[in-house]
């Protein structure tokens, strides 16, 4: 398959993730949709890496995976802290950062 097909798939996945981030209300699902956006970007990076035949894009994809793992760690920690304080798990009602 030519590289353009992979790029089309990555664009579709990225915009699906953006749609989820804009419309879902549960912060857990918002985090999942952020993962979708990162994965779309990863697919484009690896497709371009294959296109040029060098490994820089793959290294950048590994770094993106690391950043995604850190984001999951911090985000889930915040969700657990919100749950402990008996606040609603809903991004519409969590308007204030002040506890």
């Amino acid at each position: 398959m030519s590289i353009a097909w992979y790029l089309a798939v990555s664009g579709i996945v990225f915009s699906l993730g953006a749609f989820g981030v804009m419309t879902r209300r549960n912060p857990l699902v918002v985090l999942l949709c952020l993962e979708l956006m990162l994965n779309g970007a990863n697919l484009a990076l690896i497709a371009f890496s294959r296109m040029w035949g060098n490994g820089d894009g793959q290294i950048l994809a590994l770094v993106v995976m690391t950043v995604a793992a850190c984001e999951v760690c911090i985000g889930l920690g915040m969700i657990v802290a919100i749950y402990r304080r008996r606040l609603p798990i809903n991004v519409d009602e969590l308007r204030e950062l002040q506890g």
Partner: peptide, 18 residues
């Protein structure tokens, strides 16, 4: 995104890679 990715005019996009 599709315009930006597929309409770049890079010839290698239509190919099978290096």
């Amino acid at each position: 995104l599709l315009i930006a990715l597929l309409g770049t005019g890079l010839e290698a996009i239509g190919g099978y890679g290096a």
